[in-house]
Design a protein around this nucleic acid. Structure first.
Lengths: 339, 339
DNA sequence: CACTTAATTGCAATCGTTTGCGGTAACGAT
DNA sequence: ATCGTTACCGCAAACGATTGCAATTAAGTG
């Protein structure tokens, strides 16, 4: 029924709880005899220490909190995999919350995690988060925090990101090399760092390729599949169909992909398409998508490792660092040489 | 720096911690004046209650523990979404662990969650788990437990599953109706309930279609993509290529899909393919996959709701129930009418 | 004025665990 | 017989919050 405690073992053996505690932690003051008996009874009662009591005493937990927009997206799911693997190895457990791209919910999640006195926080911010007060709060409490992917540039905090700029640049550069001239960009929310960096990469690649920027070929929107179709629609409203589209994420590319096929256009013959992430899906569609690979699982591992490092440093040397992982252009069949 | 406590507020106002506690919980004994001052200071110190202390006192937590094989698989990721949504609405937080299909790790995860005194446990067992001792332990402690998808039939416990048998049956029945005769089955691990049920559905559909069962057309394996390619390989070792393959999961189907394409065979002309789950990927590949849809997000929601129900019932009326969600055959282009 | 009653608040114990410090017993040494 | 060691072990406080009960004060009553 109810869980057994150190006191139960103590009562059973007619000794004090302190002795049991020390016996279980192999304290030298305790005789091997007592230790053996304590361990036997602990086993017999299938005793499991109460982490809450332990953490309360220690004034620190072995929980790391994670907030992501939506777990169901492969990118975040893969990151979660990396995080939980690292946490597991370090003896930590992870508490996960999803903001559902909603700032209010993100705030509540943050407070819930604070209440649980997480040892640290791993966050990828909601695309509609515009105010960072709740994250600043976290720092003021001395809770280590590491942002990943969707970072918060306004804050002095550690981050794990990928080379968004470089990835975007090489993707667009490649399109230009293929001979495309009218290259559109389905961008993300304007205030998000990843959007900005990928947009910058797009712009600079155009510049480097001596193609003049045409703002009618850029539409800012969201990061998910539905944004791909709405984005493509508003692209067509502003101008004639472009020759190629560089999308801010794979889901956006998938959205555009479906929309394009609906129109009966052929990829890459009528229009080329490039994504960003290399989700497993995009290599299986027809034609398989050219995309910029980012190492999702490694982002999770790296972010978790960085957080653990900060946790163990105890805010001594609070040197927030940014780790940038490399991206890689994966060329598939949704783009081709023309002219 | 350090988090403020009820005592800090008490000291600040020159009152006792008990009064602060009662004020914060709006106890009628406390004067509105005191309440106002307490709330002001709580706000000023950005006080967040220490859940550990609260839970220790209450001898129960507001954490629900989840163990899944791998979060990165869409099916589980989507379920996680459902779980966290329901948990959020009920004021619970979610602790997530992944077993990585490893029983030892599953055991350690279970103990970690027990240590954190989770209010309840949601589990989808690893495909290599053969011993259920650790789950029985959980029940003996009086911790509510709900299995989902990969359930544990040997135990008297609540479950949320889909109609695996019916889904498999209708899929194979459909294949027969299409005119296929040599229908193979890439099955899952033999001891897993979902494998068994889907296999049974396969068998019974054959029987109903007056097709004699050929054991060379069935290979038992794993549930993931790699198992699709190895499964397909051993299928070819045992017999000539079948006309159609019913796969135990979408990832297995994807594995077989890639393998079949490598061989230069055409789907569905040379060979038909059916999956199970309706992961988003399979509708995008070419040809889009015929599959049995199971409502992943709803499985998560249902399992979480059922668990919460059990938690609130406090083991009073311990009536373990099984909720079966319906499946739906989604017919796409990886199968066709023949002859 | 003495006494009851209502309105507030504080004391102290409790949840399960940890840990500094003090205590006891046994032993050998002087 | 006295003292010092050594080896074990227990007491009690503490972590932060909650809560039954007692205490205090003020107000109301006869």
């Amino acid at each position: 029924m109810t869980q057994s405690t150190i006191k139960d073992i103590a009562r059973e053996l007619g000794i004090s709880p302190s002795t049991v505690s020390r016996a279980l932690s192999d304290h030298p003051d305790i005789s091997i005899n007592t230790k053996k008996k304590v361990r036997e009874w602990a086993e017999k009662l299938s005793y499991q220490p109460n982490s809450m009591a332990q953490n309360l005493k220690k004034k620190s937990s072995n929980i790391i909190g994670v907030i992501v927009p939506q777990v169901k997206h492969f990118f975040f799911a893969a990151i979660m995999g990396g995080i939980t693997d690292i946490a597991y190895d370090a003896g930590y457990t992870v508490m996960i919350c999803q903001s559902n791209e909603n700032m209010q919910r993100e705030i509540i999640n943050t407070n819930a995690l604070i209440s649980h006195r997480v040892a640290g926080l791993l966050i990828s911010v909601s695309q509609y988060t515009t105010n960072y007060e709740h994250f600043i709060q976290v720092q003021q409490r001395g809770i280590p925090i590491v942002f990943f992917d969707r970072t918060c540039e306004e804050m002095k905090a550690s981050r794990v990101v990928v080379n968004d700029y470089g990835g975007a640049f090489s993707a667009v550069q490649y399109l230009i090399k293929c001979g495309y001239k009218r290259i559109a960009h389905l961008a993300g929310p304007e205030h998000l760092a990843i959007s900005k960096h990928r947009f910058d990469g797009y712009c600079d690649a155009l510049k480097a390729g001596h193609i003049t920027f045409d703002k009618r070929l850029v539409v800012f929107g969201g990061l998910n599949e539905e944004d791909g179709v709405t984005g493509y629609n508003s692209l067509l409203e502003q101008a004639d169909a472009p020759e190629a589209i560089f999308c801010v994420t794979d889901p956006v590319a998938i959205g555009a992909f479906s929309r394009i096929r609906e129109d009966g256009f052929k990829i890459p013959d009528d229009i080329a398409l490039v994504g960003f992430s290399d989700n497993p899906t995009v290599s299986l569609i027809d034609p398989p998508l050219t995309t910029v690979r980012q190492p999702a699982y490694d982002i999770g591992k790296t972010a978790a490792a960085l957080l653990l490092e900060q946790i163990h440093l105890k805010s001594k040397k609070f040197s927030s660092k940014t780790i940038t992982l490399e991206t890689e252009l994966i060329i598939r069949k949704s783009t081709r040489l023309i002219a």
